[in-house]
Structure formats: structure tokens, C-alpha cells
Computed example of a mutant assay.
Amino acid sequence: MTDVIRRKIDRARPAVAEGAPGADRGWRLALSRATRDAMGLDLEVRSLSVARFSLAEILETVPDRALLSLLDGPQGGLGVLMLSPMVTATLIEMQTLGRLSPQAPAPRRPSRIDAAMVAGVIDRALVGLDETLAEEADLAWAGGFRYASWLEDARPLALMLEEDAYRVLTAEVGMGGGGRTGQVILVLPAEGRGDRPAVAAEAAESAAPQFTQELQAQVLQADCRLDAVIGRLRLPLHRIMALAAGETLVLPTATLEDVALETLDGRRVAGARLGQNRGMRALKLNETPVSARMPMPAAPLAVPNPAPKTAASQGTTDPGEIPVATDLRAAG
């Protein structure tokens, strides 16, 4: 219910709050200039909308047979650039033949070769977006992304992308004088992780304290090993001794959503979710580490030593007297 209410509130917000006109204007210019400078293709952005989507909504908006490019951003942020089949075919045809044929090609599924051929154009467009937003506040969430890899289909996005809100820039484009049309969809995390505008950053750097190189070298020498534990299994000793090569062990409590991050002595310090980053397995923390949320130890409670009991009172207990253990008495 909370997700539904949040989604309705996000949709009711005006377009200006979603990043326009900074990212709107910047992406129009960057996309058109990238195709023109890279291959001499005239690309016109006929319309562009900026909206907030959840991860589930993004998976529903993926065009059929779209080329999906995974983008790597600041602080481990991930984005996606989707090219509709007509846009992909036009870019490939312009690069291979140097011109567009009168008849549009039939739509087909993109390949790894297609992704490699358009990667340069994608990076050129993203660099152009950074340049146009150099003094804009939208640079914090739209800047710093580059091409990382290609996805064969949209199914891995459910595990690779975080369960956060995203800004989705949907551009309806016309190519080659308007004879061919298609969509270019840019998906970026809604919360800004990138650099702020240059003017604001310079003012902040002048007031912020800086670490010295010596301190940085000492901090980087510290080392700590953590193990990611997906699940555990307890077996009797005779069962372990009877294990054979190729045998499969079932982990009943294993889950990708609750991976334990533990020290060498088996102490759990945080929980995480299993995913990917730049094609490698990665973990995203989903709870605060124990050391960060553990309260400071309170001062020991001082317990006064009771008065010595007489021989006549050893068999009874005063109602106002609190019994104290012998080891606490010794500790003071």
C-alpha cells in the first residue's frame, strides 16, 4: 500500500520537479550532437518526457527487442539506456554503409556486435550531457554515467538494479530527415550520487577540511576480511565422511535477499543483497553494520556493600535489602 501511495504522489508532481529543463534540454542537445559528430546522422528529438518510475514500472516499459546498455555511474550507481529496434538498426546501417537505404530494415533482436558498435555513440552522448549540465543542478543525478556492458534481455535488471526510484527520460526521435522514428529511453537513479555543479563544488572545497596524503596512506593500509554467507548446513559427522564428488547439498535457508556479512570468527556485522556490478558479483548492504548501531557501554552500576549481618539476623532478609551476588561484591 505504501508503494502505491508513493507512486501516485510521484506522478502528481510537476515536470519541473523531475529535472526539466536542465536534463531535458541537455539530453536533447547531447543526443543530436553525438549522432551527428560520430556518423553524420541527423537525429531530431521530437518530444522528451521526464518521469519517476519504480523498478517494477521500468521493467514494464522496456520496448520489444530493444538494445539494453548498462551504464556505470558515480558511487556504484547503475543506469540503463534502451534503444528501440529502429534506432539501433539506423545507427548500425549508418556506420556500416555511411547512408540510409530508402526502405527501413525489418526489426530484429540486437546482438553483442550491435552493442559494441553503438557503445561509442552512447558514451559520446553521455559526455555531451555532462558538458551541458556543467552548471546545472541536474548534474548531481544525470552526470558521470558511461557505457559498461550489454544485456541480452531485461530479466537481469530485476537483480542488478536497486529497489529505488528512477528518473526516466523518454525521447521520441526522428532520424534521416524524419523518415524513421523510434525511442531512446534513459534510466538513471533519482537520488543524485554525482558531482555538484562546478561553482558550488569550488565553494564547498574551500571550506571543507582535507585529508593529508600521510593520513590517507595510513588509512588505506588497514585491512579487514569479511565473508559473504548465503546459507549454512549442519550435517552429522558420518554424513560428512560419506560425501562423494558430484553430490548436491541443499541449503534450505539460502536466499539472495538476505546474505550475511560475517567476520572470520563468524560474527555477523551486516546483512546484504546479492547482485552484480560491472559484470562481477557484488553485495549491497541492506542494514546498518553492527559497529555503527551498537550503543556505547554504560557506566557500571555502583552497588553499595550491605551492612554486616549479625548472628541473630542471618536467617531472615530485610525487605528493603537487595541481594548482591558474590562476584559483584568482589568487583566493587
Rank of each mutant, 00 (worst) to 15 (best):
E214I: 11
V87K: 04
A311Q: 15
A23P: 03
L220K: 14
P197L: 05
V80W: 01
L67E: 02
N277H: 14
G246I: 02
A66I: 02
L151E: 10
D72L: 08
L83D: 03
D223Q: 07
T326G: 05
D195F: 10
S313Y: 12
A190E: 13
T317N: 10
A260D: 07
R112Q: 14
A208M: 14
A307W: 04
E163S: 07
G128K: 09
P289F: 13
S32N: 09
A200F: 10
H238N: 00
A106H: 05
R293Y: 14
P102L: 07
N277I: 08
E60C: 00
A34H: 09
L243H: 02
A134D: 08
G266H: 09
R108F: 07
L261V: 15
P197K: 02
M175D: 07
A208S: 14
P102M: 13
V121N: 10
S313H: 14
A228Y: 12
A270L: 04
R7M: 04
A12T: 12
R28N: 12
V121E: 05
G19C: 05
A270H: 03
P102W: 05
M160T: 08
V184R: 07
R109S: 15
S313F: 06
P252H: 03
E162Q: 08
G77L: 08
L29H: 04
L301A: 08
V184A: 11
A254Q: 06
A208E: 15
R6I: 09
P323I: 07
A148W: 06
R234Q: 11
M175A: 12
A201E: 15
R278L: 05
R225D: 06
S54K: 02
P85A: 02
R146K: 14
M1S: 03
R99M: 13
W150M: 10
T35K: 02
A158D: 13
K309T: 15
L151Y: 07
P323C: 01
L169M: 14
G231F: 06
A106P: 10
A198Y: 09
E57N: 04
T288S: 06
V4P: 01
C224N: 14
V303P: 01
D138V: 01
M280T: 13
Q75L: 10
G182I: 03
M117H: 05
R281S: 04
P306E: 04
M117G: 00
P295M: 01
P209G: 12
T2N: 06
L159A: 15
P74T: 11
P252G: 05
N277D: 12
A30M: 08
A312P: 06
E60V: 00
D153I: 01
A142K: 04
A106S: 07
E93S: 01
E247T: 00
L235F: 08
D114C: 10
T310D: 09
D24Q: 03
K284P: 04
A158L: 15
R124W: 05
R146S: 13
R25P: 01
